[in-house]
């Protein structure tokens, strides 16, 4: 199972692309995804926060990930 992860704002700057594909065996949960991304891109660990969205909703660390999910890293938001 592979995963596609969309990147926005500073996470896109850090990773250098707007979508990254994680080949199989991909992380099975939100927590594993964050750990893997921080291992590959240590600058992600320096952010004030970095959430994960699954299908347009904020997801908890134990949330499972599937290939069909729309997954995104969510750095600190700053709208308004």
């Amino acid at each position: 199972m592979s995963l596609k992860v969309s990147l926005f704002g500073i996470t896109r700057d850090i990773v250098g692309t707007s979508v990254i594909e994680l080949p199989a065996p991909a992380p099975a949960t939100v927590g594993e995804l964050l750990a893997e991304m921080r291992k590959q891109y240590p600058a992600l660990g320096e952010l004030r926060s970095c959430a994960v969205a699954v299908n347009n909703e904020y997801a908890a660390h134990d949330h499972p990930l599937r290939t069909v999910d729309e997954i995104a890293l969510i750095p600190p938001v700053a709208g308004g």
Binding site: G9, I10, R48, A53, A72, P75, V77, A78, G79, G80
Partner: peptide, 17 residues
């Protein structure tokens, strides 16, 4: 999920990052 990048005379920065 909206992000703001401020542009200054000497560079830019993502707000609150």
């Amino acid at each position: 999920t909206i992000w703001k990048r401020e542009e200054y005379e000497d560079g830019t920065e993502w707000v609150a990052a």
